[in-house]
Amino acid sequence: MRERQPAVNVSFDGVEYEGLLGESVLECARRNGVAIPSLCFLEGLTVWGGCRICVVEVAEGHRLRPACATQVAADMEIKIETPRLRAYRKSVLELLFAEGNHVCAVCVSNGNCELQDMAVHCGMDHVRYDYQSPAREVDASHPKYVFDPNRCILCTRCVRVCDEIEGAHVWDIRHRGQQAELITEMNKPWGESLSCTWCGKCVAVCPTGSLAYQGSAIGEMEHDPVMIKRLAVARNRGEWLDPKGVS
């Protein structure tokens, strides 16, 4: 069992909660049942802090902080649902929708998609910005899985899970800025990868329909990101969490 960390007072949008020193603002919120939208964060993997959906206002100073990477401190006053933050989250989501080719109506993950859920949660009903409509090729060379970069939001969950949990490091990112893209091995087709163990963890954690099982039809693909938390807990603490008890 983990040792109990010292407790401190924190507040989310003016309501007081108990925070534990050493945990992040996001962990603290989740433990207390307070919703902070997030995308790239996944319990069990290292913190990435790239999607910027989970930025919150911490009363001291005006600079926004990513909840996933900010440690709880005593008497922290955290704001989540301010007009400014709502507007920013919406904009960041719109930027994600505009940069890839996210067409829910033809997507394997329609109805089971974290990006879609996030858009609904944040009230994003249209995209103000120019669709980039990039030309990206689907990699269906793997016998079990398909990678559709059109739906990728570069959250790097697959990169992290493959490196940190499976230990294979098949995935990585190449290029930078708007050219940044996921690759398998040294940009070889996934099906030719010698390091891929076919474990499927990358598919399990993908928040969108970018990674899916071969043969999935529209709306059929269901991911299982919680599996990673169970694996991480099993490895770090030597105990199996009840699959039903994990939220």
């Binding site: 999607c51 904009s91 960041v92 505009a98 980039q132 800025g177 708007q178």
Partner: peptide, 21 residues
Amino acid sequence: SMDESCGKCTPCRAGTVQMHS
């Protein structure tokens, strides 16, 4: 800035593209 963005975070990667356009 658009060309030199590393692409890690959404606002810089996609936001600079939209501001440029």
